[in-house]
Simulated scan of single mutants.
Amino acid sequence: MKFVKITGDEAGHGLVLDDREAPVPGTGEVLLDVAGAGVNNADLLQVAGRYPAPPDAPDWPGLEVAGTVAGVGAGVVGVGVGDRVAALLSGGGYAERVAVPAAQLLPVPAGVDLLDAAALPEAACTVWSTLWSTELGAGLRPGEWLLVHGGSGGVGSFAVQAAHALGVHVVTTAGGADRAARCRELGADVVVDHRSEDFVAVVREATGGRGVDVVLDVVGAAYLARNLEALGTGGRLAVIGLQRGRRAELDLGTLLTKRARVLGTTLRSRPAGEKAAVVAGVARDLWPLVAAGAVRPVVAARMPLAEAGRAHDLLRSGQVFGKVVLVP
């Protein structure tokens, strides 16, 4: 089968198409013919050597795919050859075929394009585990206020849609009038142009001075203090990215006064059992929204698998709204 091999060029131009034996599904696994593979910032970090694959995962990129079931391993029930599914992976999605635990599959609803469905699993699982899970995340509830940084990104665009559909008031940041308009179309109540507006001031005005209940942050250190300012009493700051730094000073007095919490999480390094629980939560709480059309995949571009390096360049440019999907 064809797959995308990392050759060591940090810019992503060292991603080349190569050949290897197709995987064989083990016990509890299924084999998928890949229709599309989602491209994520984590893939760029892996190519740059800053986010290595877990020991039990393939060493080439790809954390989510969609396709059809080509074979099933021992012990798999409820899944058959030809089924349309999306899958959360630990790695190896940039390929023509992947083997994945059956517990990490989500059925692709009839009204959703199979290729575009590849843009959903990683975002859905990240958003559910970070925002809605009461054990792992912020326990977001209907009627609360949510601030999403980067509403035009792959995770952000999913979070805005899902939160809106579940009765949450959504504020999001975006760069420029066009992106702001598209975020409103996805369901954002308030959009902050981070190039010219202060999101803390906008949040205060929108919430009548109370602040938001939850912040979903991909920025990291540069926004830590201001995120805390934007939180209301009992607020939760959920950090899932470090785009602008790892280290910052935290005012503990403000944290205590607001009775706030700071949560940090990653998805890829979780053991299989935890990932299965996350996928089950998505299937229960968020996937019905996809089936109903209330949440849709937001795909900026479809590109051939052989052009994975160019896809990384496009994502790195900051011009992508939603996701890029690679097509074997």
Score class of each variant (00 low, 15 high):
Gly14Arg: 07
Ala221Phe: 10
Ala95Thr: 10
His194Gly: 00
Thr172Leu: 10
Arg182Thr: 04
Ala37Val: 07
Arg141Ala: 15
Ala35Cys: 06
Ala110Tyr: 01
His169Thr: 13
Arg179Ser: 02
Val202His: 10
Ser152Pro: 06
His312Ile: 01
Ala103Tyr: 01
Val112Glu: 11
Arg284Trp: 02
Arg141Pro: 00
Gly14Met: 09
Leu31Trp: 04
Thr233Gly: 01
Leu255Trp: 08
Tyr94Thr: 08
Gln46Glu: 14
Val215Lys: 09
Val47Ala: 11
Gly264Tyr: 05
Ala291Glu: 15
Val262His: 01
Ser152Val: 05
Ala225Gln: 13
Ala95Gly: 10
Gly241Ser: 11
Arg316Cys: 01
Val168Leu: 09
Ala306Phe: 03
Ala95Asn: 10
Leu250Arg: 00
Pro271Leu: 11
Ala99Thr: 12
Arg268Gly: 08
Leu315Lys: 03
Phe3Met: 09
Gly14Asp: 09
Ser196Asp: 01
Val298Pro: 05
His13Ala: 14
Glu185Met: 01
Ala300His: 15
Val39Ser: 06
Arg50Ser: 14
Ile6Ser: 04
His169Ala: 14
Thr126Ala: 00
Lys2Pro: 14
Arg268Leu: 07
Gly111Leu: 12
Val327Lys: 02
Leu315Gln: 13
Leu44Arg: 14
Ala283Val: 02
Gly150Glu: 08
Ser152Asp: 04
Thr257Lys: 13
His312Gln: 15
Ala225Trp: 04
Ala174Phe: 13
Phe199Cys: 09
Val239Tyr: 06
Ala110Met: 03
Arg84Cys: 04
Pro107His: 04
Ala48Gly: 06
Arg296Asn: 01
Val170His: 08
Leu255His: 10
Ala283Pro: 03
Arg50Val: 09
Leu315Met: 14
Thr233Val: 15
Arg310Lys: 15
Leu120His: 10
Ala308Ile: 01
Pro52Ile: 07
Ala177His: 05
Ala248His: 06
Gly156Arg: 04
Ala292Asn: 03
Asp113Val: 05
Asp83Leu: 09
Ala74Trp: 00
Gly73Thr: 10
Gly75Trp: 13
Glu197Tyr: 03
Val98Gly: 05
Gly273Ala: 15
His164Asp: 09
Leu315Cys: 01
Gly12Ala: 08
Ala308Tyr: 03
Leu228Arg: 07
Pro54Asn: 05
Leu255Cys: 02
Arg246Met: 14
Gly67Leu: 06
Ile240Gln: 10
Arg247Ala: 12
Lys258Asn: 06
Ser90Ile: 01
Asp56His: 13
Gly167Lys: 11
Asp83Glu: 13
Gly49Pro: 08
Val155Arg: 02
Ala22Asn: 05
Gly175Trp: 11
Gly220His: 13
Glu249Ser: 12
Glu229Trp: 03
Pro271Asn: 11
Pro58Leu: 03
Val202Asp: 11
Ala110Asp: 15
Ala291Met: 07
Glu144Met: 04
Val203Met: 13
Val212Cys: 14
Cys183Asp: 07
Val191Met: 01
Pro142Asp: 07
Val203Tyr: 12
Arg268Thr: 10
Val202Leu: 14
Gly235Cys: 12
Gly91Tyr: 12
Thr7Ala: 14
Lys5Met: 13
Lys2Phe: 08
Ala159Trp: 07
Gly71Tyr: 03
Ala276Val: 09
Glu229Pro: 00
Leu63Gly: 00
